[in-house]
């Protein structure tokens, strides 16, 4: 069965006829050609595929494209503001929070969601717990945790400054 799926993807309305069994991650990667979102497992555990749907982090490998019809979807490609990196992206680089880069988009999207939910309250223990659904084999998590903490502190500072 083919159906037309329409969504806002990184701020742009996109539409395509796809098989109903098409996963959101395949819609993003193959139909729309945005390959930053990755597939690292078959059991919804590794988190390489995390994107935001209607403002919330979800695993795009565990959602049909059809379920996202009419939704607002944000991927790692839509995070930076032009050439200006999102603070979480910048923090991953500054803290060496990535090595091979494969889990990185999912980590970053999870981190952005985490910081949005917890604000400036993030401590190491919370960060580690919140990363339960994202697996990295390269970094040992040490610098990912550091990066998220740094971004969280910085974003809290930015918020205070604008208040």
């Amino acid at each position: 069965m083919m159906s037309k799926v329409t969504m806002r993807l990184n701020g742009k309305t996109v539409s395509a006829d796809v098989e109903d069994r098409t996963l959101l991650v395949h819609f993003i990667r193959e139909t729309q050609g945005l390959t930053g979102t990755h597939v690292g497992c078959d059991t919804s555990q590794c988190g390489a595929c995390v994107v935001h749907v209607d403002g919330k982090a979800v695993k795009s490998c565990t959602m049909l494209a059809a379920q996202a019809d009419g939704s607002d979807v944000l991927t790692v490609e839509g995070l930076a503001n032009g050439d200006e990196l999102h603070p979480v992206q910048a923090a991953f680089r500054e803290n060496h929070g990535l090595q091979c880069g494969f889990c990185t988009p999912g980590m970053i999207m999870t981190a952005v969601d985490m910081i949005e939910r917890h604000g400036a309250k993030l401590d190491e223990k919370t960060i580690r717990h919140e990363l339960e659904g994202n697996i990295c084999r390269c970094t040992g998590y040490h610098n990912i945790v550091k990066a998220i903490k740094a971004a969280s502190d910085q974003m809290a500072g930015m918020k205070t400054a604008t208040e």
């Binding site: 919804s44 988190g47 995390v50 919330k56 982090a57 979800v58 695993k59 565990t62 959602m63 999870t110 969601d113 985490m114 939910r117 919140e130 339960e132 659904g133 994202n134």
Partner: peptide
């Protein structure tokens, strides 16, 4: 339950 992304769905 699960992880944050799973709990959102």
């Amino acid at each position: 339950i699960g992880d944050p992304a799973v709990r959102h769905k």
